[in-house]
Design a protein around this nucleic acid. Structure first.
Length: 838
DNA sequence: AGCACGCCGACT
DNA sequence: GTCGGCGTGCTC
């Protein structure tokens, strides 16, 4: 009987509901909470809920499942609250999170943490208040001075955050005092929750209704205001901007207050009129993004582009994923636009992933012109509020096309039709830290698959894995390269650093040929790009007498010299130190800089070419939200002759006047202790070289190296990606590197060297017994052996390329780590797992 | 991960 | 004696 009743009124079901909640904690579990009656008919998958976790913490979680099965092993706690009227996360996303957690060996809570903009995560603060029943006069417990101090301070405010007491009393003592006051019943401790997201509002002004109804009143009013010139002015201005008597309905929306002020009205007079009840002030919620009309920008495809587009469409019929190889400036953008248009017209959503630094370029403006306000941009420099608005925009359907960085994979899409990953070879698609350490390109393919959508990977110099997958037929492949000749390839010059040095021709790190080419370009008023992949002034300092090098106290790295602040800094833990006047080892004053950073190159250039206008673009000069854009605009406008920069200059520059590109130190890219260094050198040098010469002009590229005889340079110069690929592939096969094996890197972290190493060694032994074709390497001290006083050891696993083997292996790997952590000796050791590491 | 609880050294 | 170190266990 009861059940029948429950069926007809689901909200009053007699059965208790339970919710499995994902919480942002690294525990490989879902947590089951009881759903109280009041929440039963407004809960479901993807709702945010507030729960008590442990004794004190209050957390925001996401509901992953609602069911009726009470947990057997424990008593479920009740949900404290359901935060939304509609789900903010959909079931597909939860599926995606689960995949990511299992593929990248992390906890779903960590994925959730990365996925939700923090504006959607509630923060709780512990607050303290004087207990309402507390009587300070009552003879009760004796209070000591510190307790009285806290009570006194508290009495002045009606409530305080726990952290505020830390200023009053040093750190941890305040905790104790509050605790003792709590047991004495003098104070009340509670968690207060606040929504972090706040909508943007705008102050508006309108005419009070009564004046609108009766015209006579207004005339009277003007008579009254005679002599009050400023106020009269405001009113006149208002009527001028908004002719409310012709169109009374327009008064409701009023005018933006700042617009009136911009028209020369005095803010105080406006306020006075509002106080008198003549004008009304009100607030409206507005979007943080400009509403743009969908542009009418027409895209014309060239015959080659049209042909390529058709080929892409043809291959998409058979393949889910497709690699489009096309050199920069070959017209990929127009093809993207056409594809996106078609998918949007069919009613599906589109996601275009870009590496972070490519996101502020003309490409975005171009797309904005075409797709207008239906396109959302998701930036890493966006504020939290802006991110929440993009999230909500996808949820509400306001945006059906998103262009964004790797984390835009997590936006709440419900019907993706196409995902494009541009510059798919870019290393910035891989997240290093913290978990989930995912590769956005690969995750995008999985996400697309879950949506039954297509993925298009675009690059001029594809990642080896992608090209391999295309070669083996796993992906489709379309090329957008000119077939005959390489008319667009610039003239390459290899400059031998050592040879010039011997002949005394190397001046301030510049070879003769590069100096001459720069001078030539300057004479012709053409622009120059100088590429140096190291920011700062100099990597490190060294004593000329004894060779002493300043090192960080907490990390196993040398300190970087920052000229501007005259200090030495650790890039790993933030440790700072004033520049020593004398060498602490031998007392010598001859401390010199070793190595070259962008700052130093900039300085050298200004010495070599005093008449040139030089700018620098690296992490340090582009930190602000629009810093990058400003430098690019300046360069584009021709206000700069020479632009020095890191990898950033390989992106987004598309200027006709660049006739010369210089690579200061190619060896730095080439000799990186990493199996991908060759690949990366090929990609980076090709990319930056591609900036030289456009359209009708052929540019020059000068590559400075100590080893000009290397094969890779000839391949770069010939634009021979395939040749390079073939040769490199043979090496990868021979030495068991991806794409022939699956790499997993495990890093152990502990304050004691021995323990860190032993943990890795024990893990290796446990893994050795797992049945799978594999190679185990290490443990070896990490490249940077110590960070923040924790020692790091690495274990590399090369696993056979079989999905089922990998899945099993990962499960057993997690088990092995759990076993190890059962050993008290290894309990405090942290194990970081990196699947497909770089 | 955080956080509380609990058992040991170095100070008023 | 207390304070505060950090090893240990737990979170629905």
């Amino acid at each position: 009987m009861e059940d029948l009743f429950a069926h007809s009124y689901p909200g009053t079901s007699a059965k208790t509901l339970f919710a499995d909640v994902i919480l942002p904690v690294p525990i490989p579990k879902w947590f089951t909470y009881k759903v109280e009656r009041e929440f039963q008919d407004r809960i479901g998958i993807g709702y945010r809920v507030m729960v008590r976790f442990g004794n004190t913490k209050i957390l925001t979680g996401i509901v992953a499942r609602v069911h009726q099965k009470a947990p057997e092993a424990y008593l479920a706690k009740p949900l404290l609250d359901v935060l939304d009227d509609f789900p903010v996360v959909n079931a597909l996303q939860i599926k995606f999170w689960n995949w990511m957690a299992s593929y990248y060996c992390c906890h779903i809570g960590e994925v959730m943490h990365a996925a939700l903009p923090s504006g959607l995560k509630l923060s709780t603060e512990s607050r303290v208040q004087v207990h309402p029943d507390f009587d300070p006069e009552a003879p009760g417990f004796p209070m000591d001075e510190r307790e009285l101090l806290v009570l006194e301070t508290l009495a002045k405010h009606d409530e305080m955050k726990v952290e505020q007491f830390e200023q009053l009393l040093p750190g941890k003592i305040s905790h104790k005092i509050i605790k003792s006051l709590l047991t004495k019943g003098a104070v009340l401790l509670y968690e207060s929750v606040r929504e972090k997201y706040s909508p943007k509002t705008e102050q508006r002004i309108r005419l009070a209704q009564q004046y609108l109804a009766e015209k006579g009143l207004l005339q009277e009013l003007f008579a009254q205001l005679k002599g009050k010139q400023k106020q009269e002015e405001v009113l006149l201005k208002y009527l001028q901007v908004l002719p409310v008597f012709q169109k009374p309905e327009q008064n409701t929306g009023g005018i933006v207050k700042s617009v009136l002020i911009d028209h020369g009205c005095s803010p105080s007079s406006i306020d006075t009129l509002v106080k008198k009840g003549i004008l009304e002030a009100f607030k409206v919620t507005i979007s943080r993004f400009d509403e743009l009309e969908t542009g009418q920008d027409q895209v014309e495809l060239s015959p080659l582009q049209q042909q390529t587009l058709e080929e892409i469409q043809r291959q998409f019929q058979e393949k889910q994923t497709l690699l489009l190889q096309g050199i920069t400036g070959s017209g990929k953008t127009e093809i993207y636009i056409q594809l996106i248009k078609e998918v949007l017209e069919s009613g599906s959503q589109v996601l275009l992933l870009l590496p972070e630094i490519a996101l502020t370029t003309h490409l975005v403006f171009r797309l904005k012109k075409v797709f207008g306000s239906k396109m959302g941009v998701f930036h890493s420099k966006y504020s939290d509020n802006e991110r929440v608005e993009v999230w909500q925009g996808v949820l509400s359907g306001r945006f059906n096309f998103i262009i964004g960085v790797r984390s835009s994979l997590f936006l709440p899409f419900d019907s993706l039709g196409l995902v494009i990953v541009d510059e798919e070879h870019e290393p910035s698609y891989k997240q290093f830290d913290p978990a989930p350490r995912f590769q956005a390109r690969d995750a995008a393919i999985m996400l697309a698959w879950m949506h039954q959508a297509k993925t298009l990977l675009g690059s001029a110099t594809p990642a080896f894995e992608s090209f391999y997958n295309a070669q083996t037929g796993k992906y489709g492949y379309v090329s957008l390269e000119k077939r005959y000749g390489n008319a667009e390839l610039p003239y390459f010059h290899l400059a031998d650093i050592l040879a010039d040095k011997k002949k005394n021709l190397l001046k301030l790190d510049f070879t003769r040929i590069l100096r001459e080419k720069i001078q030539e370009a300057l004479n012709k008023q053409e622009q120059v790009l100088i590429f140096q992949n190291r920011r700062g002034y100099a990597p490190y300092l060294s004593c000329e007498e004894c060779g002493w090098i300043p090192e960080c106290e907490h990390c196993d790295v040398s300190l970087t010299y920052h000229q501007y602040q005259e200090e030495l800094r650790c890039h790993y833990c933030g440790f700072k130190e004033k520049l020593p006047k004398a060498c602490p080892a031998c007392g010598s004053h001859k401390i010199t800089t070793v190595g070259v950073g962008t700052e130093r190159i900039e300085e050298n250039l200004s010495l070599l070419f005093p008449e040139a206008r030089i700018a620098r673009m690296d992490l340090d000069t582009t930190r602000s939200k629009y810093g990058y854009q400003r430098i690019l605009e300046d360069f584009g406008a021709g206000n700069v002759d020479i632009l020095v920069g890191t990898q950033m200059i390989t992106k987004g520059l598309d200027f006709d006047k660049v006739s010369l590109v210089g690579v200061v130190d190619a060896d730095r890219i080439l000799y990186f202790p990493d199996f991908r260094s060759g690949e990366r050198a090929f990609q980076q040098i090709t990319q930056v070289a591609g900036r030289a010469g456009r359209r009708e002009k052929t540019g020059d590229v000068v590559i400075q190296t100590r080893r000009p005889d290397q094969l890779i340079f000839r391949q770069i110069m010939a634009g021979d990606y395939r040749g390079f690929y073939q040769q490199e592939l043979r090496e990868r096969k021979q030495f068991f590197y991806p794409p022939f094996v699956k790499n997993i890197k495990i890093t152990t972290k502990h304050k004691d060297v021995k323990t860190a190493e032993q943990a890795a060694l024990h893990l290796k032994n446990l893994l050795a017994s797992i049945e799978a074709k594999k190679i185990l390497l290490g443990p070896e001290k990490s490249l940077i052996g110590k960070i923040k006083n924790l020692y790091l050891f690495e274990l590399w696993i090369k696993l056979e390329k079989s999905v089922s083997v990998q899945e099993q292996f990962k499960v057993q790997l997690m088990e092995a780590i759990r076993t190890l952590q059962g050993d008290r000796k290894f309990r405090p050791v942290r194990f970081l797992i990196d699947v497909d590491p770089f």
